[in-house]
């Protein structure tokens, strides 16, 4: 951590906050405060420089044109790449996930360079949009319970050798590659297609980011009964699609 407070950076809400993903920032902030941490949340609009001294960076999903604009501005700004070099924890969703990779297909149907922070390449799927509840098993190395989320995308994301699948789907599409992978991660950078928002349904992901940022192995417990109730309901719902 840079000083006594945890700096949580919410990247480009003007472009990438269309699918409720700011809930991830709210959950991380809330769970940090419940542990008595002093949190400074910084919302960075796309005409402002990305601070390089943040501890956790969150990027959400957005529509196709804002996604291209965000990629252009993030590349020009360079701040997120510098933050990553500084060891910051970065968690991205959907359009934001694609931006962190090497490239994706933009709204003009062209290949748009990403930030290269995750070893993934995204294309656009030919079939129907992937919409619905997802259930997946998170990579056991991360020590997290099952992943529940809502997907709503047409992307197909292929993982390169230095990215690991974040999870293996039990129900739903995830990366859309047909190989059952969902999301990607390396030591400090995470990507997922899951909305919901994903932290509301999987608060332990928020805790994982806090532990990585604080470099601790455990956090004081919180009262998670509503999260747990929601998780049970959604996991059951994903297993029995309507």
């Amino acid at each position: 951590m840079s000083d006594s407070s945890l700096r949580l950076v919410w990247v480009y809400p003007d472009l990438l906050s269309t699918y409720g993903d700011q809930g991830n920032a709210l959950v991380v902030e809330r769970r940090a405060r419940q542990r008595g941490l002093d949190v400074q949340r910084v919302d960075v609009r796309s005409d402002q420089p990305i601070p390089t001294s943040g501890d956790i960076y969150l990027i959400g999903g957005g529509e196709d044109r804002p996604q291209r604009l965000a990629a252009e501005r993030l590349r020009r700004d360079g701040g997120l790449n510098r933050a990553a070099e500084n060891g910051a924890i970065i968690f991205s969703v959907c359009a934001g996930y694609q931006i962190l990779g090497h490239e994706f297909i933009n709204d003009l149907g062209e290949r748009e360079p990403g930030l290269g922070l995750l070893d993934v390449v995204s294309t656009r799927g030919e079939g129907a949009r992937c919409v619905g509840d997802v259930l997946a098993d998170i990579d056991p190395r991360l020590g997290l319970p099952q992943l529940t989320g809502f997907e709503n995308h047409q992307g197909v994301t292929h993982l390169g050798p230095t990215a690991r699948p974040f999870a293996r789907t039990v129900f739903g599409n995830g990366n859309g590659t047909g190989d059952g992978t969902e999301g990607a991660f390396n030591e400090t950078v995470f990507g997922t297609y899951m909305h919901g928002p994903v932290m509301a349904r999987n608060p332990q992901i928020a805790d994982l980011l806090l532990k990585l940022a604080l470099d601790v192995n455990a956090l004081p417990p919180t009262d998670d009964r509503w999260y747990e109730a929601l998780r049970s309901e959604r996991i059951a719902a994903a297993s029995q699609p309507a």
Binding site: S17, Y19, D21, Q22, G23, P197
Partner: peptide, 9 residues
């Protein structure tokens, strides 16, 4: 709409 994510907006 079957996605409740909007509640967070």
């Amino acid at each position: 709409g079957t996605d409740t994510s909007w509640l967070w907006d």
